[in-house]
């Protein structure tokens, strides 16, 4: 029974991960691509690590997996925030701003 739940978690996590990978090719500009990458960072990490925890005997291995999960959940938002902030300071515009620039130019 536990194995079935764990399999469901792993497969749904893999699906979300693929979704993010498709998203970083499909989305039109940089800031939206960060959102797509953050899907793989948050939910697919949670699901896959929980799926693996269900396969352990709930011993030291499970604690190590929990450490990986907590660490990733703390660091991946920090990394994407630093990325977005440095892109913003580097002068990258968001999609809405580029569009409004074009409108102003057309008028």
């Amino acid at each position: 029974m536990i194995e079935i739940i764990s399999s469901v978690f792993l497969i749904v996590g893999a699906f979300f991960s693929l979704t993010g990978a498709v998203g970083i090719f499909k989305f039109p500009d940089f800031f939206t691509r960060v959102h797509a990458a953050s899907v793989t960072d948050s939910i697919s990490t949670i699901l896959i690590i929980f799926g693996l925890i269900l396969r352990t005997d709930f011993d030291l291995v499970a604690v190590k997996l929990l450490f990986i999960l907590i660490f990733m959940l703390l660091t991946s938002p920090t990394a994407s925030h630093a990325l977005a902030k440095s892109a913003r300071h580097g002068g990258l515009l968001t999609l809405a701003e580029t569009r409004s620039d074009k409108k102003v130019g057309d008028d």
């Binding site: 938002p77 994407s80 925030h81 977005a84 902030k85 913003r88």
Partner: peptide
């Protein structure tokens, strides 16, 4: 930032 769809810049 952790919730997908919103990003704190």
């Amino acid at each position: 930032t952790l919730t997908p769809g919103t990003l704190c810049i």
